[in-house]
Amino acid sequence: MTTDIYLDGEKLEYEDTKGDSTLKELVEVLEKELHGVRRCVTEIWVNGENVAEWMSEAVLGKRISEHSELKLMTASVEALALEGIDILHEYIRFIKENISSCSTDLRMGRPSAESLFAAIFEGLAEVLKTAIALTRGAGRYRIDLFKEDPAVFYKPLMERLEELDSARSAKDTVLMADILEYELVPLITGMEEKVFTGYAT
């Protein structure tokens, strides 16, 4: 069976004589070619379906020949960076909102604190992950993405996350509320102002 492959709507000619090339290999080849035009793959549609987790090994590890149709979409790295920054802003806004409710709930011993805390914790991990990815991408494409190097915030952020985790293990809700309200909020706000504001606005 042959597989029809499209890149941004245009059909690609390709060779897969043994029929054992994987999707990962395809993406790597394409990204190398796209590097020159400062674009990269952002979406993959398999047999007409948008695969959200396309970066996962489960998707990329499959053979091209297993699919009847593959559509790959690309975007410019600048657009991607902007999108990443937007996501970061959105995460930070959401985290700050939740911190306010969560620290109150923690101080009052309300059960709702637990789910809010989990959301904040995950959100912060996501912020770190996204920021690190953006830093790397920006470096590779020489994009002046940040006002200041965000890396200076990673360490204190990581430290707060560790402190939060150990306060949670010790069931010290007052300390958790304090770290969230008086340490994380200023840190995130500072990061937002010093690192992202210029580019995003």
Binding site: T104, R107, A170, D172, V174, D178, E181, Y182
Partner: peptide
């Protein structure tokens, strides 16, 4: 091993309670 009042603003915390 756990704090009984905020290390930052215990009065604000009491007002909340």
């Amino acid at each position: 091993g756990v704090y009984f009042h905020s290390r930052y603003d215990p009065w604000k915390e009491a007002l909340l309670q």
